[in-house]
């Protein structure tokens, strides 16, 4: 039997979550005695197989077909289901990315298996896999088992450590029947930013109502530039129209877990904490010494962010 990682690539570039999923897949395969396989789907992507081998993969199955150039959930789910029918894996891992969030459940419905989404940990003990998944955006954590021969899980980005390892590294072609797509992609608009994507970022600088207005985000962007960070926002700042919703961190926004989360002018409502509480280190900057953010911040600075952030930017620039 095997553990299969569904590889995610965009425009011929592998996503970071794929390396995380492969690394976790390898750890689990070592514990359970399964082989680790990767399924690579796309058009003109066969060359990516070599990069996957670095993460201990025993076999890479490549589905390279012009009809798969653009991802659509219905077609990709059909390809995955065909591979699962042939392979009968014990476990299939996806990233909990925009793609994984819809492809995994669509495939799970086709295969009729259980899926645990947004896992923070997966363990193998006593012959079964145990999946840990946050509920109420992290206000509680549930441990789950999946009943049935095939189990599926999506893994939260930035949580599972990347580790290179050895594997047999065979590459095989897989050529299933490919159905016609029910949707047509007519346009793609990627944000023209050099900043990392919010859910993948190692460092996030977020701003809230305490910034005083949309122009306050210039400070946050300045800090993000010097740290190579992504820019996030509280719900209050999004609701006020200062920032687009895609930047919102919290229970009704993105759930993130960077190494460093710098919250400036954010009070720390339970709604917001739910989205960033699993960050490794939290810094809170707020003029209100009683703000709830100080109850969770590893380092808290009570002060005027208009003074603190420029000074912080200067200090960080000195180091570069």
């Amino acid at each position: 039997m095997s553990i299969v990682v569904c590889v995610e690539q965009r425009d011929g570039k592998l996503r970071k979550i794929t390396f995380e999923a492969l690394s976790e897949g390898k750890r689990l395969a070592t514990a359970s005695g399964e082989t680790l396989k990767a399924l690579l789907i796309g058009s003109g992507i066969a060359g990516l197989a070599d990069e996957l081998k670095k993460y201990g993969v025993d076999e890479v199955a490549v589905v390279d077909n012009e009809a798969l150039a653009a991802y659509t959930s219905d077609v990709y789910a059909a390809v995955l289901a065909a591979y699962i029918a042939q392979e009968n894996p014990a476990l299939v891992l996806f990233g909990h990315s925009a793609v994984g969030k819809e492809l995994a459940p669509r495939t799970a419905a086709k295969v009729d298996c259980g899926l645990v989404s947004d896992c923070l940990a997966v363990t193998f003990a006593d012959g079964d896999y145990l999946f840990s998944h946050p509920v109420y955006a992290g206000k509680a954590i549930g441990s789950y088992k999946v009943v049935g021969p095939v189990r599926m899980a999506t893994l939260r980005p930035n949580v599972f450590a990347v580790a290179e390892s050895e594997g047999a590294g065979a590459v095989v072609d897989f050529a299933p029947e490919i159905p016609a797509a029910k949707v047509t992609i007519t346009g793609v608009d990627m944000a023209s930013s050099d900043r990392p994507e919010l859910t993948e970022a190692d460092i996030i600088c977020s701003g809230g109502r305490g910034l005083g207005g949309p122009e306050g985000f210039a400070l946050i962007e300045g800090l993000a530039d010097v740290l190579g960070a992504a820019v996030g926002s509280s719900r209050a700042a999004v609701d006020a129209g200062w920032r687009e919703h895609a930047a919102q961190v919290g229970q009704t926004g993105k759930v993130v877990s960077p190494n460093l989360y710098v919250a400036s002018g954010i009070s720390g409502a339970i709604q917001h904490l739910a989205g960033m509480g699993s960050s490794k280190v939290i810094v809170g900057i707020n003029k209100d010494g009683e703000a709830n953010i100080f109850n969770v911040a590893d380092y808290g600075i009570e002060g005027d962010l208009n003074k603190v952030i420029p000074a912080l930017i200067e200090k960080l620039k000195e180091l570069q």
Partner: peptide, 15 residues
């Protein structure tokens, strides 16, 4: 916003 898994839309679309 409770279990936050977002599986039902995709499962329903497939079924």
């Amino acid at each position: 916003v409770d279990d936050g898994v977002g599986q039902v839309p995709s499962r329903l679309a497939e079924k």
